[in-house]
Nucleic acid binder design. Structure first.
Lengths: 212, 212
DNA sequence: TTGAATTTCAAACAGTCGTTTCAACCCTTC
DNA sequence: GAAGGGTTGAAACGACTGTTTGAAATTCAA
């Protein structure tokens, strides 16, 4: 590996750390270059500035998180609605497994929900996240035909939020005093339990009409 | 009202805005004093510094959010487990109603979960939030006696997270393109639906044993 | 109204921020 | 091995940060 790529990769790696810890504004060029043992001006040379470096990391984050979407419309249509829910939940939970690899990306995106950067806004303007669309399609199969916009919106948000607390509370689970081992077995059980609970919760919305 | 209290209150009010928008680090003394139409040094004079002002706002936030906890152990023990879940959910959802009054506090606390300040750490060290305890007690009534630590932890986190996405996505719901009116009727229906779904989901954990 | 205390004000301080600069260095290629 | 472009290095720039300062203005009691 060329020496120029070494510093470039070191900058990317440590910048991901710092951005995840402190957010875009909180991360300083000096701290990133200090950890990467690179010069203070190296970011401007290799990437063209702090924001350009952040854009590159955002690109890697989106790529790493979106390369696994086994849920396309066709396969989803051929499943029962219960199976669709379970697969959707499983898809949301599995990132926990390679937490060490993508936890930094998840945390960077968490920062974006609270303090959206200009770089991120431009990003999602071009890229579209089909998660909400998928969730809405699944949810519609449980709600009655007469369901209004509000009901659909609430159920959709609810479904997309079933897995997020565990990603958010990863540290709470894995560190003292809980000390749970987040391994493949744990994820498997979590996906199974959450899937069954979600099916049960959504099924309730079907048996009784909630319209007034 | 004395003129000194006017500036003091203006500082508190606009500082709450800025802290909610930009977080503690992102909020600048100059921006706060500019909005409050006060002098740049007024924060140091009235509160003793930026951090002291933030502590005061944290104190107000905790007070505003904790004055409403109708769920003590006694009343909860006299309820059926289904009623306990529904009341717990309702308690979590109701802050949405006076969103205009406490949304800024909620957002400040959301910042704290991502970037905890020293002021906040000292705060929660003395104050304890019984929400997790309440949730765990409720959850235990649904899980089998043989349930392990992991199962209880997962279910507890799940229950506490049922209402949060709607508080987090308040803007998504109330602003275009959704434009849902978050009024008393909406909250009532949301609490009812979420409560029924949560009961259904938790009940599943009881009917079948999940132990291997 | 006078006089003392409180509050406001503009200016300056030391520190950090991202970026620019240009000489010094490394490494490839001839 | 020397030339040349690619890369690194230390220093400096202007803009921003929270805080301090001391004089000016305002408020309140006598």
């Amino acid at each position: 590996m060329k020496i120029t790529e070494i510093t470039r990769n070191a900058l990317l790696d440590h910048a991901t750390d710092v951005f995840a810890e402190l957010g875009y504004e909180g991360a300083s060029v000096r701290e990133i270059t200090r950890r990467a043992m690179a010069n203070q001006a190296s970011i401007n040379y290799h990437f063209g500035g702090k924001e350009a470096l952040y854009r590159e990391i955002l690109r890697l984050a989106i790529a790493a998180l979106s390369d696994e979407s086994p849920l396309d419309d066709d396969t989803m249509g051929n499943m029962s609605r219960d199976e669709a829910v379970r697969l959707f939940i499983r898809q949301q939970v599995t990132p926990l497994l390679k937490h060490g690899q993508i936890s930094r990306y998840l945390r960077i995106l968490a920062w974006e929900t609270l303090a959206p950067t200009a770089a991120y806004s431009k990003f999602i303007a071009s890229e579209k996240l089909p998660i909400l669309d998928q969730a809405e399609k699944i949810v519609r199969r449980f709600l009655p035909e007469t369901a209004g916009r509000a009901e659909i919106a609430v159920a959709t948000i609810w479904l997309t939020a079933q897995a997020t607390p565990f990603i958010r509370h990863y540290d709470t689970l894995s560190k003292p005093p809980m000390n749970l081992k987040i391994d493949k077995h744990f994820i498997e059980k979590l996906a199974t339990d959450l899937g069954r609970m979600a099916v049960a919760a959504l099924s309730v919305r079907d048996t009784f009409s909630t319209a007034h």
